[in-house]
Design a protein around this nucleic acid. Structure first.
Lengths: 265, 265
DNA sequence: CGGTACATTGAAGGGGCTCAATCCACGTGG
DNA sequence: CCACGTGGATTGAGCCCCTTCAATGTACCG
């Protein structure tokens, strides 16, 4: 992408709240000292001492864990405007590794400055809080998929989620986008084997739902795909900046305490 | 447990940083208006409007999602001192449901007060930030388990994690603790079927590693169990309150880009 | 042109699921 | 006190989704 005029974090937060000039200037500082990371290199290595918080400015990165015997779980895909180093930066050593998928540029942000943000620009602090909440919600959605969805549903859901996230930052149109992931990484993200991911992709292609060819994803039937995946595109964008009162809350009977424990059909 | 003198959030944060009298008073406010929730009732219902942030004072609660056809995924177990309403409170409607497992008491905390915290007691704000990071990290660990561990490893890991968490708040000793979960909920937490959870528990019992009888878990061979589960007990407690500098960071070759995509043996 | 990384396909096996009972503990009411 | 109902635990048989193993195909690169 571009070289220096790229402020994805600003753009992301501007979608949530109207930013004042002061807030824009503050956010610019967060993204002011970009550093390049070459394709395939580690930005953070699990177990090493952690060096701080960063914002991904450009490129795509991966957070993952490798177990003793080589099994690997990809935890999430990090896109421009996402923070790197959360939640790991609060621990003595990194909990997970992060690697640059393509060439990336990242910008370190001193943690003290992030905390100071809550004093000087509390609204901005809340927005960043939201951004991190959003990331946590994606972990939860990911967990639901791996825990309770079939391979077909899982792949479909993943592709739709990537489409939504990429479109939000202008890297996807309605029907097509570039996904710089090998099938092996896809498998490690979804908790499947490479071969079965391949077979699942073929099935999705043969049913004219999606096709992915040479890292280019094309959605042929959006409705059928969302139905198959049970996809809720809303949650990623629906932010609520209102005041929060906790005067009354719901207390209704739990409807389906016995409804669970069913597998993918 | 007790009725009114119970401040689990204070206790949790006191383990991280030395609290000043002012900070203690502030935290007490967070836990000052306890409300009771009867066993089996919903504290938060997915899709409904969200009413704010709360702290769980006493009891055990569950966060979960039920899919269309009844499949259910339990996302995490909420223990005293944990926040309820994160990450959901930032969204227009609740993303997940939360139900009281036994009788619970919760205390609502106005969101404005949480944000104000960063101004008046920034250190406390950072500690709460950490607490939420810890929750996110648990989602990630959960994801690793469900994605890449065998049923045996998964159950073992889960029991060890619960032991660690419960021990940190004084609800477990070294070898035994009470786990108020049915095998059905266990299955929905681990992405397995009830029957297979049962079989796995039997296997763990027959190999003299753990046994769980009438909601009481007894660990017979801690070393063998941690080895089997590849359990890292450290991450839950290792907090780092130091200043964060981002001057230099690691940039080493990615060692195992081809090591992944292996299943549980 | 050989090497390397990735994609693709097939056959065979297993881990974990479904279906279907039975059993057990416990509370409830007669 | 016993009969009974109910929620949960347990066990077994059969099957299927997904994995493993093995091999071939294909693009890109020096």
């Amino acid at each position: 992408m571009s070289s220096g005029e790229n402020f994805p974090l600003t753009q992301r937060l501007a979608r949530l709240i109207a930013l004042s000039p002061g807030e824009i200037a503050m956010l610019r500082e967060f993204q002011a000292s970009p550093r390049n990371v070459a394709r395939g290199r580690e930005i953070v290595l699990e177990g090493r001492k952690y060096d701080g918080l960063m914002v991904l400015i450009d490129g795509v990165a991966l957070r993952y864990r490798v177990l003793q015997d080589g099994r690997r779980q990809v935890l999430n895909i990090i896109l421009p405007g996402d923070f790197i180093g959360f939640p790991g930066c609060f621990f003595e050593s990194a909990l997970y590794s992060i690697a640059a998928l393509g060439d990336c540029t990242v910008s370190p942000v001193p943690f003290s400055r992030l905390l100071g943000l809550f004093e000087t620009f509390p609204r901005l602090g809340a927005a960043i809080f939201w951004s991190l909440s959003c990331e946590t919600a994606m972990y939860a959605e990911h967990l639901i998929g791996v825990g309770r969805r079939s391979a077909l549903e899982r792949v479909a859901h993943f592709l739709l989620e990537m489409q939504t996230r990429l479109q939000a930052i202008g890297l996807a149109d309605d029907h097509s986008f570039r996904l710089p992931l090998t099938q092996e990484l896809l498998a490690d993200a979804l908790g499947l084997s490479v071969q079965y991911v391949n077979q699942t992709l073929r099935q999705l292609r043969e049913e004219d739902l999606v096709s992915v060819e040479r890292h280019q994803v094309t959605i042929h039937n959006y409705e059928a795909l969302t139905a198959l995946a049970d996809f809720e595109r809303t949650y990623i964008n629906r932010f609520r900046m209102a005041e929060f009162s906790a005067e009354n809350w719901l207390e209704t009977e739990m409807p389906n305490l016995t409804a669970g424990t069913r597998q993918a059909p």
